[in-house]
């Protein structure tokens, strides 16, 4: 193996976010993220379900991921494992995903730099391939406020891509 310690910028260099041009990226602390899978999970949860492009306004909500899986955000604590009564598999994923908000006038212009997406093309799942990374992408609180969940080991990469795209969006405006 080589010693590449200087080839990679230290993890966490972009901290809890940044502001570039008309784009703000900020870390969001959520109290809990719970993966729930099951054949009837979509009918069993009693919090609002979020897909694309609807705007989530609740504090506790369920992200629609697959036909048999949701991610409950800011929900109540629940025991991990298989629950026979409801046919649900539950796993605490609170430390699995880092969460960031992307807002500002150029927020959607940043989003369009990471994936092919449009408000006119709805999707039942908030999962997306974004700059090559697996993320959950949905709108919260406002038309131009986007929330991203990314697996924690890819957080630095996501922030790096967002920073670059925000710079490009700003340069495009200034041209």
């Amino acid at each position: 193996m080589r010693d590449d310690r200087n080839k990679w910028a230290a993890s966490g260099t972009l901290g809890d976010g940044f502001e570039i041009g008309d784009v703000v990226v900020s870390r969001v602390r959520v109290s809990r993220q719970l993966l729930v899978s099951g054949p009837r999970v979509r009918t069993q949860i009693d919090v609002p379900t979020v897909g694309w492009p609807e705007i989530c306004e609740a504090t506790t909500y369920a992200l629609s991921l697959r036909r048999d899986r949701v991610l409950v955000v800011n929900g109540d604590p629940v025991e991990d494992g298989w629950d026979d009564a409801t046919s649900q598999a539950r796993s605490d994923a609170s430390d699995l995903y880092s969460v960031f908000d992307l807002s500002g006038r150029d927020a959607f212009n940043v989003v369009k730099r990471g994936t092919e997406i449009s408000m006119e093309s709805p999707s039942r799942s908030v999962l997306r391939r974004f700059f090559g990374l697996q993320v959950m992408l949905y709108r919260v609180q406002a038309e131009d406020r986007f929330r991203l969940h990314v697996a924690r080991a890819s957080e630095d990469a996501l922030l790096g891509y967002l920073e670059s795209a925000a710079g490009s969006a700003w340069a495009a405006r200034s041209r």
Partner: peptide, 23 residues
Amino acid sequence: ELRNPVKRLPLEARHRAADAALC
């Protein structure tokens, strides 16, 4: 660095502080 980003360990800061050769 963004061409093929590596996954980062939760303990990376500790390894760097301990003078680790990272690859």
